[in-house]
Design a protein around this nucleic acid. Structure first.
Length: 309
RNA sequence: GGGGAGGUAGCGAAGCGGCCAAACGCAUCAGACUGUAAAUCUGACGCCCCUCGGGCUUCGAAGGUUCGAAUCCUUCCCUCCCCA
């Protein structure tokens, strides 16, 4: 049936601190692969410590794509990620190498593999206006506006989920058609690859230990200093500083939080994030879950016709 | 030996006669997610039937007061702190 099988594209997913990067590196070296980061924070230059960005050494060892591609003050979106990641993957394939998509940003992975609906990009001015309505009249008022133009989306989106209500309204205002309609139109999926997704999901307690270790490493590695520098360079504030880790570091920098308390919050929020990631990957992607990194490696090795270990 | 504080659901912690199966936080579990996604949002969380809702057993223990007690009284058990 299948004459020439499509080239492999291996994705490595799972919650933060589950060992995705290490596995990706190991596979890339063994298989002659290149890493395509799938991480919404690592795309930003200057956010190094808090995004657990691959080190200089790691990046020298194996080419990494989609890391440090934009400035921290530039707007970035899942769609933009998908565009750039697809270009990177095409390049890797053209070189006859194996693309390894590694990361835990579920939406980005989805945008890359399945595509997004062909809709308008964000409109910050409009968003500001809608936010103002919500702030003044309440979330229910904004949700009511949505219900009028797109009852289907309104039924799906929680009243208090302002981010989604705003987005749905934005799409309607920009296109004159409800979001639901756009969704039905489908999206442009990535084609030409035999996509396999490997999932790492360490036991809860092991993950917690890893998260604590990494949080401490970030704090010891200069997260606070990095954050202060970013704040100093961008007094207006920076969108990505709202991420876990940076948010707490900002609070410390502003003197609103003790370091010990910030650390606790970081661990707590990271664990919750990990939980969300698992929910996403369990339901939004077809993932082959592996109990250990070795098992994942072995499985990938068999696909790639590599020696097992 | 004397004085003080306290024992509430897995943990922390409110409640201090009815609106209490008991706020809130943590932990845990489940979920949503299509251009801010490490973001944003939802639900469960004593037990049982499980849909609304209903039933059952709880607030250290045992008695008591009361129409009614986690909340008041008595005794007992146990923690912690201070003085000896």
């Amino acid at each position: 049936m299948e004459a020439v099988s499509a080239p492999l594209l291996i994705g490595i997913v799972g919650p933060t601190a589950s060992g995705k990067s290490a596995l990706g590196l190991r596979l890339a070296r063994a298989a002659g692969g290149e890493i395509v980061s799938c991480d919404s924070l690592q795309v930003y230059r200057g956010l190094d410590v808090g995004s657990a960005k691959p080190t200089r050494e790691e990046r020298a060892l194996v080419p990494h794509h989609l890391v440090d591609v934009i400035g921290p003050d530039e707007p970035f979106t899942a769609a933009e990620y998908a565009r750039r990641a697809r270009a990177a993957i095409a390049g890797i394939a053209a070189r006859g190498r194996v693309p390894l998509v590694v990361g835990g940003s579920g939406l980005y992975l989805r945008a890359l593999l399945s595509g997004l609906f062909a809709g308008p990009s964000r409109d910050d001015a409009l968003r500001a206006r809608l936010e103002r309505i919500a702030a003044r009249k309440g979330d229910a008022r904004l949700h009511g506006l949505l219900r009028r133009v797109d009852p289907e989306a309104a039924a799906r989106i929680e009243v208090r989920d302002r981010v989604r209500v705003v987005r749905a309204l934005e799409v309607f205002r920009a296109t004159g058609r409800p979001l639901s309609l756009h969704h039905r139109a489908g999206a442009d999926a990535l084609t030409g690859f035999d996509v396999r997704l490997l999932g790492l999901n360490p036991p809860r307690e092991a993950l917690r230990a890893a998260v604590e270790r990494r949080t401490d490493a970030m704090l010891a590695g200069g997260l606070l200093e990095e954050t202060r520098a970013l704040l100093a360079a961008h007094p207006g504030g920076l969108a990505p500083l709202n991420a876990i880790g940076y948010r707490q570091a900002v609070a410390v920098a502003r003197g609103e939080r003790e370091v010990a308390a910030a650390r606790r919050d970081m661990v707590k929020e990271t664990m919750r994030y990990a939980k969300r990631q698992m929910t996403w990957f369990r339901h939004q992607a077809r993932v082959e879950w592996c109990a250990t990194a070795d098992e994942a490696y072995a499985r990938a090795a068999s696909w790639l016709a590599l020696p097992p270990a």
